[in-house]
Design a protein around this nucleic acid. Structure first.
Length: 327
DNA sequence: AATGGGCGATATTCGAA
DNA sequence: TTCGAATATCGCCCATT
């Protein structure tokens, strides 16, 4: 039940259509193409994604060429013309033994050409979802979830008047939240090269149209991901979780960003356990500024009644007892 | 649909500790 | 590294056009 949505993602060593092993790499388009039948076997053997490694300050530069190369755009692969007759585009006659394949290709082409427009754009969207999920490093289940959402949206005509990319990224965003591993709008839009405005508008439409009622992202759902990116010691992660929960309980309906809360709690926990993690590092991973971490963590500490003695700030090795943060 | 004001949260910058 | 103040920007909400 996994793969009804899928298009073949791995490279083959022979063409699945004509079984020829003459596959050539088209470095211009980043496609793996069958030399004898023209089938595009794989569309992205070069990484089309935006740069990952930029940090907070040059976040804007991550999108230096705008949207990632749109390898799956609609005229790739499917609309190739296959001339009638027994000669190829150079006027050379087809080899005798290739003819059956050529006929089959023509038949396929015909089918594709007359396929319903909706189906074609759906296929395109599914390829986008595939690509987006891979750029974001999301597990298959996430992408499948997104695909389900997208299909529902498409059936309800929600894509009309909007862009496929916008809706697809919105579906991805929603899927992440449904799966309990939320991403921020910012993360999604910058790594996928979608304008934020477009993403939020699409997401709103998606949510409204499908009647999705997603509770606001819980801060603790961000913790796992941040913790692993920071390689936090388990003890610090555990303490962070404790703090995050206590914080959310204490300041319900605060309209502050969950990633700020998590970042602050991680910092706080790292201090309390004497294994300080620099604000700057946390800031990079969580996508919030250092200032936000400072403001949030001091107010959280106050709210939870935590005493930050100078000892905590300066001596990395002393473990200070934390008053129980139960509510 | 576009525009603009109000507003709270957050970002940037920078000097000081 | 961290702190904290000043200043700028962002995104959302709402009302207006």
């Amino acid at each position: 039940m996994e793969s009804d949505v899928l298009l073949p993602a791995q490279e083959e060593d022979s063409c699945p259509e004509c079984r020829s092993s003459h596959l050539i790499r088209d470095y211009v388009h980043g496609e793996l193409v069958c030399e004898s039948c023209g089938l595009v076997v794989s569309e992205s053997f070069i990484d089309p994604g935006p740069e990952w490694s930029g940090t907070g300050q040059d976040a804007a530069n991550k999108i230096r060429t705008g949207a990632p190369v749109n390898v799956a755009s609609h005229d790739k692969g499917l609309t190739t013309e296959i001339a009638p007759g027994l000669r190829d585009s150079q006027g050379k006659p087809f080899r005798e033994e290739d003819r059956p394949q050529i006929y089959r290709m023509r038949k396929l082409q015909k089918r594709m050409r007359y396929a319903q427009a909706g189906e074609r754009s759906l296929a395109e969207a599914l390829m986008e979802l595939e690509r987006m999920a891979s750029v974001l490093g999301l597990p298959r289940a996430f992408r499948n979830e997104a695909a389900v959402l997208y299909r529902k949206a498409a059936r309800k005509g929600l894509v009309r008047g909007r862009t496929i990319l916008g809706m697809a990224s919105a579906a991805i965003y929603a899927a992440c939240r449904l799966k309990g591993a939320p991403r921020n709008l910012e993360e999604i839009s910058s790594t996928l090269g979608i304008r934020r405005r477009e993403l939020t508008l699409s997401y709103k439409a998606l949510g409204r149209g499908l009647g999705l009622r997603l509770p606001p992202p819980r801060a603790e759902d961000f913790l796992r991901r941040f913790a692993s990116q920071l390689a936090l010691p388990p003890a610090v992660e555990a303490k962070s979780l404790e703090l995050v929960r206590a914080t959310e309980r204490a300041e319900q309906f605060h309209s502050k960003g969950p990633s700020g809360t998590v970042a602050a709690c991680i910092y706080l926990a790292s201090i309390l356990l004497g294994q300080k993690v620099p604000q700057e590092k946390i800031s990079r991973v969580a996508g919030v500024s250092e200032v936000t971490i400072r403001i949030r963590y001091t107010s959280i500490a106050k709210r939870l009644g935590l005493e930050l003695s100078p000892r905590d700030r300066s001596q990395p090795s002393s473990s200070s007892p934390l008053p129980p943060v139960s509510a």
